[in-house]
């Protein structure tokens, strides 16, 4: 269980998180929602260890790899979809066929060898999401994973995500109520 205890975080004069405490349950999805600028992404960055809180503590974050989808894609743009998914894995974790199957599951069949910089924004989002979901990890952190996808693709990708997140600890930022309805979990309203 990840515990956020009395966490405060400010950027200059602007306080983003004020005395936040929350326990994120193990092996369950927690949806983090709230208005823009309320500190959702900041909370994820604190949990990921990319920033430090001004005060308070964050406990129970696993020390191993974390499957993460950032607000930005953060992909290797010169490399293919396959390389992007394979490069974060330990050697032999996934066969090429398994990765091609996963690509197919999110509507990217036949795209394994396509360089990411030749893909549309929606395709890149799905590659970034797959990268986070395929890695063998105790924690998955997703920041608005379905943003920028059309409704049909969103439904396909949500279904795949729901399947991958079963019995996993996941923190997901969203603004979309439909996401929360599709994948059951706890809700943290900031």
């Amino acid at each position: 269980m990840i515990k956020v205890v009395n966490v405060n975080k400010s950027y200059g004069e602007h306080a983003v998180l004020r005395n936040l405490s929350h326990h994120f349950p193990k092996d369950r999805v927690t949806w983090i929602t709230g208005a823009s600028g309320c500190g959702k992404t900041t909370l994820l960055r604190l949990i990921l260890g990319l920033e430090s809180p001004d005060s308070g503590r964050i406990l129970g974050v696993p020390s191993g790899a974390i499957g993460c989808m950032f607000q930005e894609d953060r992909l290797l743009h010169a490399a293919s979809a396959y390389t992007n998914l394979q490069c974060v894995q330990r050697r032999g974790a996934y066969t090429r066929a398994a990765i091609e199957n996963a690509l197919q599951s999110v509507g990217l069949e036949g795209c394994a060898d396509q360089p990411v910089d030749e893909m549309s924004g929606g395709m890149r989002r799905r590659i970034a999401l797959l990268r986070a979901l395929l890695i063998d990890t105790e924690l998955i952190v997703l920041d608005e994973p379905f943003k920028g996808l059309d409704e049909a693709t969103k439904a396909l990708v949500r279904a795949f995500t729901a399947q991958r997140l079963q019995n996993k600890t996941a923190l997901i930022v969203t603004h979309d109520e439909e996401d929360i309805r599709t994948i059951s979990g706890e809700i943290l309203q900031l």
Partner: peptide
Amino acid sequence: TSLIEMARIFHMPFLNRLRYIVLS
């Protein structure tokens, strides 16, 4: 640097970091 952050969070193998992020 955002890719370096990504590599750190994913525990990307060292040789892959060198190859895909640093060298490229």
